[in-house]
Structures are given as structure tokens and as C-alpha cells.
Nucleic acid binder design. Structure first.
Length: 371
DNA sequence: AACGCGGGGCG
DNA sequence: CGCCCAGCGTT
């Protein structure tokens, strides 16, 4: 290797050491972020908190963590409950596949591993719903294994401090930042370091309006020196948004309501809904059209249209939902719909529904979503 | 390698 | 309105 390359290499090694030290110093003297799972040593609770926090803000996840740990103090409690109850507790948190995998893993650990949570990174990352981030978090927090977490905070902090514009959502970027994070990791106290860099990213090196003026890494930060802080990190994905037109028919007969559990590979998997009709564009529902639709689609001659809502709008990350709700009273449960569940209001209260449906069900909140 | 998956908060 | 959040599983 050329002499000049050795010099650059040496400078890089020095920079890394300084950054590790500066982050730990900040953590030990100024980090006052408090969270219910901080300092937790029970791998079950660490795992639970990390799954809840995947792609989810700490403030949004906090109450869910408290509700779950209160209702399920151990992984055995969680494994033993009915699916519907667990989904009800997860209701509103989003990314419902997490809940499905949470239950699967709880039962796997309870039944196949005799209740012993795995205690090495390799075994932890093999669990369903646990990827590289979550495994590193559990391994470092619970067992002090030297694995660096790489989450949105870490991508941001490292891309700025080292002024790296490799896209964080590329395969190359993930590998590069993972390697870098493991080099910066304080091997003697991996758990504390991982906590430090994430808290630092969340409170100082924030996505918008980072607190560079009071940042203890200010002089070390390459992006700061080059005036590129606001340009980092770089992502190259442009997500396509599509609009969907959904009409839910709340069909009532014999004191019960038709309920359907969503199961296809689509949003709100495993949550419940009413009878859904999806169209490629806005449908102008009139009482006559609804009556005619009941006749044609449900083979129901006498249908009483109770109400037709306005168009409610909900913005998801990747979809815009335009929804209408139509309440229909039928004289009896039609033979064409006996395959569906017909439930009482009390039974429906036990089930998890998408946010949008719950908001419509609450008359006080309906108007806030009117398009 | 690319895509799909919720809901909320912020500028 | 667009961006981001203690990411992961599927194809």
C-alpha cells in the first residue's frame, strides 16, 4: 500500500475512535431520553419493544408496549392468548404482519424452545419477524453481544458524520453502513453504544432541523464541514402512490352484522371489515343504485338503505384510500351470504378493524375524515 | 434487487 | 402534501 493511503487509513481510524468516544461521552453526560424499555434485560420485553418500534415512532409505540407488557407479563402469556385478542391489542399500530409474526414466535419459543428465548445473534435472527436490526438490538441489550444496530437513526448519523451519499436503501448502502456501524461500535459496551447512537440520532442528529449548533460531534462531522447535512442521508426509492376506491356495506339482519376477516395479500391482513366493494374510480351511490345492487349481487329483494356516508379519505404511506360506508337493513340473512360471519355488536367490539372503519364507527369522529 | 406493508407527526 | 419513523418478508 502506498504511503499516502496509509495516512488516510490512519486518519480514518482516528476519526472512528473519536466518534465512538464522543457518542459515549454524550450518552453518559447528556442523554436524558427516557423510555419504558430502557435498561430492560428480559429478552422477551426487549424483543416485544423492538418489534413494536419497527418503522414506528417511539411516541406511537409507547402505550402499546405498556398495554402488551401489562396484559402479557411473560412470553407464555402472549403465546397462550387467542389470535383475535392479540390483534385487538395491536389494532391501530399498523404493519399487521408484525403482529402475526409476534404471535408465531411467541408460540415457537414457548412450545419448541421450552420457553427459553434464544441467546445468540444467529439464533435470534432466525426467529420470524426478527431481522438484522432487531436481532442486533436484542443480542446487544440482553446479552451484550457485539452487534451494531442499523436503523434509520444509524443510517442518518453515519451518513452525515462520514459524509457518505451512498443510498441507504440500496444493497451496497446497507452493507456499507452495517460495516461502518460495527467498526464504530464500542465493543466493550455494545448495548450502551447502540442505545447511544439511536438516542443521538433521535434527539440531536434529527431528520429535520438537526441540532448542529449544540452537537458534540460538530467538529468531527464531515457533512457539517461541507455544508451537506441537509442532503444526507440519500435514498433512491420513489414510492408509487395509488388511489383506491372502497365501499363498505354494513349489512344488518336479524340483529347481527356481516363481518369479513381480511386474509389476502393486501393491506390490513388479518383485520376485519364489512362487505367490501372495490372500484377503479369513484362510484356515485344513490339509494336506488344500492337497492339495485342488493338485488343483483346479493339476491335480496327487499333492502332498506339506512345511510350513505360521504367520501372519507385516509392517507397511508403508499396508498390513498377513498372510502364510503353504506348501512343496509335486510329482512333476513340472505342465503347468498351465509358463508360470512354474522355477529352481534358485542362480538364485533372484540375484533380488530382498520383505523378508517373504527373512525367511521365512532359518530363523533366521522366528520374529521370527510373528503 | 425490488416491492408491499399503517398510521401518525412534522415542516 | 411529502417525508420519515428502533424494518421485515416475499417474490
Amino acid at each position: 500500500m502506498l504511503k499516502v493511503e496509509w495516512q488516510i487509513f490512519g486518519l480514518f481510524m482516528m476519526l472512528k475512535k473519536k466518534i465512538t468516544a464522543a457518542l459515549m461521552e454524550w450518552h453518559n453526560t447528556q442523554n436524558n431520553r427516557e423510555m419504558p424499555w430502557k435498561g430492560e434485560k428480559d429478552p422477551y420485553k426487549i424483543w416485544l419493544s423492538e418489534v413494536i418500534l419497527q418503522q414506528t415512532r417511539v411516541e406511537q409505540g409507547r402505550t402499546y408496549y405498556e398495554n402488551f407488557t401489562h396484559k402479557y407479563p411473560t412470553i407464555q402469556h402472549l403465546a397462550a392468548d387467542k389470535d383475535e385478542n392479540v390483534f385487538k391489542l395491536w389494532e391501530g399500530l399498523g404493519y399487521y404482519n408484525r403482529c402475526k409474526n409476534l404471535l408465531f414466535t411467541a408460540r415457537f419459543v414457548t412450545n419448541e424452545l421450552k420457553g427459553r428465548f434464544p441467546d445468540t445473534y444467529a439464533d435470534i435472527v432466525a426467529l420470524k419477524g426478527v431481522g438484522p436490526y432487531t436481532a442486533a438490538a436484542i443480542a446487544s441489550f440482553a446479552y451484550n453481544e457485539p452487534y451494531a444496530v442499523v436503523d434509520g437513526n444509524v443510517f442518518r448519523v453515519l451518513s452525515r458524520v462520514f459524509n457518505i451519499d451512498t443510498p441507504t436503501d440500496s444493497t451496497e448502502g446497507k452493507q456499507l453502513f452495517t460495516d461502518l456501524a460495527n467498526e464504530v461500535l464500542d465493543k466493550k459496551q455494545p448495548g450502551a453504544f447502540n442505545q447511544a447512537i439511536m438516542d443521538f440520532g433521535a434527539t440531536i442528529c434529527k431528520p429535520m432541523a438537526p441540532a448542529c449548533a449544540v452537537c458534540p460531534l460538530q467538529k468531527l462531522c464531515e457533512a457539517r464541514q461541507h455544508g451537506r447535512v441537509s442532503m444526507l442521508p440519500v435514498k433512491n426509492k420513489v414510492l408509487q402512490k395509488k388511489t383506491r376506491w372502497l365501499t363498505w356495506f354494513k349489512l344488518q339482519a336479524e340483529g347481527k352484522t356481516l363481518v369479513h376477516k381480511r386474509s389476502s395479500r393486501d393491506i390490513w391482513e388479518n383485520l376485519h371489515e364489512f362487505y367490501l366493494v372495490e372500484a377503479t374510480e369513484k362510484t356515485t351511490w344513490t339509494r336506488d343504485l344500492v337497492t339495485q345492487w342488493c338485488w343483483n349481487q346479493l339476491d335480496v329483494k327487499k333492502a332498506e338503505v339506512i345511510s350513505i356516508s360521504g367520501v372519507l379519505s385516509q392517507q397511508l404511506t403508499h396508498q390513498t384510500i377513498k372510502a364510503q360506508f353504506i348501512e343496509v337493513q335486510l329482512p333476513h340473512i340472505p342465503p347468498s351470504l351465509t358463508e360470512y360471519d354474522w355477529l352481534s355488536t358485542k362480538e364485533i367490539d372484540q375484533l380488530a378493524f382498520p383505523r378508517l372503519i373504527n373512525l367511521w364507527l365512532d359518530p363523533k369522529k366521522r366528520d374529521s375524515l370527510l373528503f
